[in-house]
Simulated scan of single mutants.
Amino acid sequence: MAAEGLLLLYSEGFPTEVFGEAKADVPGLLRAVMPVHEAEGRMLRRLPVVAQARNGVMAQSIRAFLADRPVVDIPGVTASTRLLVLAGHDTNLDAMAVIFGLSWTFPDQPDSTAPDTVLAFERWRYPDRHVEVKVRIFHQSLEELRTGQASDVERSMQTLEPRNAILP
């Protein structure tokens, strides 16, 4: 949590003076401490039982929505709902990774579940009634977060290949 706290301070644009002795090279400090946060995420990604227990309702809701089934755990989601947005934290992203069998890294970000990381499930329906689900992840680089700069969507997006079934 301390590593993530430092990342949040930096990405929110706090002055480098809050980092004390490390103010001369805060990105270097983050490169040194973020592996601890990444290790925690990898540990969670190896525990599907824990991910399911803590985030199973979210995963079931995503699956139900993508399959045009009722989403009973989210009030207000009806058959006419076309866009479902769920907000979460880094641990939710880690849980969705293990539940759906997803994997990603970002070369310009020391944290694979950094602030403003978006996991998107797209349902594509074709005229022949074939349905395909595409999973994409979007992020901002560390410097884009710090400066409040919009990310280039094409550069920041990765299409992921789930190892586990999305649709039932």
Score class of each variant (00 low, 15 high):
E38V: 00
D25A: 14
P127G: 08
T81W: 15
E122A: 07
V36T: 14
R136G: 03
A64L: 09
A39K: 08
P127L: 10
R125S: 15
R63W: 04
V131A: 07
I137R: 02
K23N: 06
A39M: 13
L83W: 09
V133R: 10
T113F: 10
P27G: 05
G28T: 07
D25H: 08
F100A: 06
T16A: 10
R31S: 10
R125D: 10
P107A: 15
Y126F: 13
R45K: 15
L83S: 04
N55D: 13
R69T: 03
V85D: 11
A51H: 04
T91D: 10
A114Y: 01
A120E: 13
S61L: 05
P48F: 05
T117D: 02
E122I: 06
R42H: 03
S112I: 05
L102N: 02
M58I: 15
V36K: 13
D94S: 11
E17S: 11
E17H: 12
V49I: 02
P35V: 03
L83Y: 00
L84N: 07
V36N: 12
R82D: 08
L83R: 08
A67M: 09
P110F: 07
R123E: 12
V118K: 12
M96E: 04
I74Q: 03
P27D: 07
E38I: 00
A53Y: 06
I99M: 02
P27K: 05
K134G: 02
N92M: 09
T78M: 14
Q52R: 13
N92S: 15
A59K: 14
D68W: 09
N55R: 12
V57F: 03
R46P: 00
G56W: 07
V36W: 06
M96G: 05
H37I: 00
A59G: 06
T81C: 11
F100H: 08
T81D: 02
V26I: 13
F19G: 05
V33S: 02
T91Y: 15
N92K: 08
D111L: 05
A79H: 07
R123F: 08
W104M: 04
R42T: 00
I99D: 02
L47Q: 12
L83D: 13
G76D: 12
D128L: 13
T78V: 14
A59S: 10
F65E: 06
I137H: 06
P107E: 15
Q109C: 07
V85L: 11
D116S: 15
F19H: 11
I62R: 02
V57A: 15
T105P: 01
T16Q: 13
V118P: 01
Q109N: 14
P127K: 07
R123H: 01
D73I: 05
W104H: 06
A59M: 15
A22E: 14
R54K: 13
G76P: 01
D25W: 12
S112H: 06
V71L: 09
I62K: 12
K134C: 11
I99T: 00
K23R: 14
G28N: 14
A53Q: 07
A51I: 00
V77C: 08
R63Y: 03
L30K: 05
